[in-house]
Each structure stands twice: as C-alpha cells, then as structure tokens.
Design a binder for these strands. Structure first.
Lengths: 143, 143
DNA sequence: CGGGATCCGCGGGGATACTG
DNA sequence: CAGTATCCCCGCGGATCCCG
C-alpha cells in the first residue's frame, strides 16, 4: 500500500524486527508511556505507576532504554540519592507512532477478543473428513 | 500529548499491552507484512518469504492471526489441498499504524545502535565512589 | 501440501536477599 | 533510595517425526 517492498523484513538486522523485539519486552512500552505521560519521574515513582513490575525488571528495562538513547537518566547527588528519568527527543519521537498503535489497540482489541471467543465456540462444528491425500508421490518413482 | 491519561496502561487487560504481546511474538509482524505486501498467499509461499521460520511457528502464528480475525483462511479443496491466507479488513487496518512504526524504525534504529555502541564504550570511564548511604534508618529506632 | 504431536533447550522474567 | 546478585521456573520457539 505504501509502494515499497517489505522483502527485507526478514533479514536478521531488520530494524522493524528489532524495534518490535524491544517493544515486545514486557514492560518497555509501559515505561515509555509512563514517562510520556508523567514527564520526569523517579525510580520509585515509576514503580508506583507500574503495578506488578519487579525492581529488577524496571531496572533492566530502564538500562536498556538509556543505552538506546530513548531515555535520559539524571542523578541528584543527595543522601540518599535521587534518580530521575525522562524521555529523550528520540524517545518522544517514538511516542508518535506508538500512540497511533495504542489508539488502534483501544479501538480494535475488543473486536479481536470477540472474534476469538466466537470462533473458539465453533469447535463443536468440527466434522470428520475421509482421507484425501496419502503421502507425497516422488516424481519419477512409481508406487 | 494526546490529552488523555495512560494510567490504565498497566491493567492486566490493557489493549495496548496485549497487542504488543502479539506483535512482539517473533514472526507475527513479518507474516502480517508479507500478506500486506503479497496479497493472498499459500502456506508454502509464506514459508519461502520468511527465511528461518519453522512450519510449526508459521502454523501457530497463522492460527492466532485467524483466531484474532486479522487473517482469513481459504481452502481450495483439491488433492493435495491448497490453503490461502490473506489479511482481513481488520488486519489491513492494523497495517496503518504498523507501517508508521516500520517507518520510524527504519529511520531511527541506526541512531539507537550508534548510541548503544558509543555508551557501551564508556565502560572504561567508570569511577569507584565512596559509600554514601549505608542502609535505611527505621523511623523511631536509634542505631 | 498443509499441517498436528512431541521433545527439549534457552532465555525472559519473577521472588528474594543484599549493597553503595 | 536505587539499585545489584542469585536462584529458579515456565513458556516461546526450534527440530523432528507423522498423518489426512
């Protein structure tokens, strides 16, 4: 639809593949969403906003985001220390297509769920068919 | 930025969370991309277009997409049978935000990689700091 | 041709305990 | 407060074999 091919989608270093790998990692998109929503947040505040996350996974997720340059980390050198996280420009720019995906999800996941439950109910309609194909026939060799 | 809160991002049934779970599953986005690009394709043709996919994962991925209503399955009752897959309208509509994400990835993953390699090189700049905070002080109890 | 059934390795990620 | 270190479980996904 866009006009360009997607044949390179499967190359091992396909950027889309790798981006989705990261976004698919359980908490990344939520943390990004929290920071997009809350501006600059501290570690514990992020934990509060992510019910169920372990501090290990929050830590790991943030480290990756910082390494990727999507999130900036700022340390206030008090005792005890305060650490703040915020989206970089790159991270903010990611929010654009990401929020488009969120919007799609909010409007359509219901339909997906409906389709699921409806088609899963059709398991009662299964019919037993007679065998139609019994193995491949190697070309050149007779049975 | 959009004006609405994202506090429900963390509810267990958050649509965005669940959508990304599926897109994050290794082959889903590629299969969707292939079908968006190739129109109606047969099982084996999809395998050809996805170097490295096992038939089990292609099968599983397609089943989920069909259950979700994103992909339609059509069986031509020949011997041996021919099975065709194509995006439904819902699936095609997903391609819109998804291609936006692809575009972002193609334009920015390079910067992410650069930031990675550069900051990972800064491991040599690590400095040992003296202890500043030795455990919490329970309020009401003296050391 | 288009799958299903089974086995198994690996890594994501949760729980817990400890530290600067 | 903001992490690191360790252990361990479980489910994704690859390999292989078989069937309609």
């Amino acid at each position: 639809m866009t006009g360009d091919r997607r044949g390179d989608l499967f190359s091992p270093d396909c950027p889309t593949r790798r981006l989705l790998d990261r976004l698919g990692t359980k908490w990344t998109s939520m943390v990004v969403g929290s920071l997009a929503d809350g501006g600059e947040l501290r570690f514990t505040e992020l934990r509060r906003r992510a019910p169920g996350i372990s501090q290990k996974m929050l830590s790991t997720t943030l480290q990756n985001l910082v390494l990727d340059g999507l999130v900036a980390r700022r340390v206030e050198d008090t005792v005890p220390p305060h650490v703040y996280y915020r989206l970089t420009e790159l991270g903010t720019s990611l929010e654009v297509p990401l929020s488009a995906l969120r919007e799609w999800a909010q409007q359509n996941m219901g339909r997906i769920d409906d389709h699921r439950t409806r088609t899963e109910a059709d398991r009662a309609g299964a019919v037993a068919r007679p065998a139609l194909y019994s193995g491949r026939r190697p070309s050149g060799t007779a049975p």
